[in-house]
Nucleic acid binder design. Structure first.
Length: 280
DNA sequence: AACCGCTCCTGATCGC
DNA sequence: TGCGATCAGGAGCGGT
């Protein structure tokens, strides 16, 4: 399940292969996964940049186009120069990659997604700003200067009764956290996942900021977390899963106090925490 | 207005 | 061994 560190690693693995190369959308593609609101062409368009915002990837193309991708749970980009290699099961979109307009493809960029929760959307500059989807209501980027204790304190004031776990997962507050990192951040900060954010002090928010930056940076450096499906654009697994303290470890011993890690459900997500270290 | 919970979807895992 | 039930969850949306 790609969250910010995994999406960042996908971006970094694809960029050297795709920058200044040309993409052509090949049939077949899956209409549920591929959304093309403006009926725009996608043929021999040059990739000028690959950016990340939260969990979204933005392939910036010439002709004022953006291919915006969200991988949700099981979406995966695979870059391959072996055109004869078999596609992964559930491959829904394929792009031919060539060095120039009219040249034959030397590679393919493939999108596979067993659960089909992910979406690829092709938008022009104007549409990108007005299209109604999560990309346009994202909150602070956690590895940017906007992400400060004061920002979180102000945001918490707008939803004081929200549980901190739900708050961390709210993409309009912080862009890019998912279930794994939310649990790890709360554990690192010794905060119970059900604490209402209105009762959290600025000093605690400072700790949340510091631990979020520390954990995300560490995970990016370790090529992300491969819990089930995640791979980068070259098919490589992450290494951060061996550094997880609580996610996926319900019933096991707490690495800090040796108590038993508990599990609960908060806004539909399984949540693991240490009842001793993270008291209310 | 601020939440809650349902929906999408398949593969892995579990209990009988 | 086989088969049905359960669980995993990001974002969007309808309901309260």
């Amino acid at each position: 399940m790609p969250e910010l560190p995994e999406v960042e690693n996908i971006r970094r693995s694809l960029a050297p292969h795709l920058l200044d190369e040309y993409l052509t959308l090949k049939q077949p593609f899956h209409p549920q996964v591929w959304i093309n609101p403006g009926d725009l062409p996608c043929r021999d368009v040059k990739v000028t940049a690959i950016n990340r915002r939260g969990k979204y990837l933005d392939f910036v193309l010439d002709s004022n186009l953006h291919l915006v991708a969200h991988l949700r749970m099981t979406g995966r980009f695979t870059y391959t120069e072996d055109l004869a290699s078999p596609c992964l099961p559930h491959t829904h979109v394929i792009f031919a990659v060539s060095h120039s307009v009219g040249l034959p493809a030397h590679a393919e960029l493939r999108y596979s997604d067993p659960r089909r929760f992910g979406r690829l959307i092709l938008l022009n500059d104007t549409e990108l700003k007005s299209y109604k989807f999560g990309y346009n209501s994202l909150g602070a980027e956690p590895l940017s200067p906007d992400f400060t204790p004061a920002y979180l304190l102000t945001a918490a004031g707008k939803h004081p009764h929200a549980k901190i776990k739900s708050f961390l997962l709210d993409q309009t507050v912080i862009a890019g956290l998912g279930n794994i990192y939310a649990d790890e951040i709360l554990y690192a900060c010794r905060l119970h996942p059900c604490i209402p954010v209105g009762s959290i002090s600025e000093a605690s928010w400072e700790q949340v900021v510091n631990e979020t930056i520390r954990l995300l940076s560490l995970s990016i450096a370790n090529h992300g977390t491969t819990f089930r499906d995640y791979r980068d654009g070259d098919g490589k697994r992450g290494g951060f899963q061996s550094l997880l303290c609580v996610y996926g470890r319900a019933g096991q011993a707490c690495p800090r106090c040796n108590g038993i890690l508990a599990t609960t459900r908060i806004s539909g997500r399984s949540t693991v925490y240490c009842p001793q270290c993270q008291a209310m």
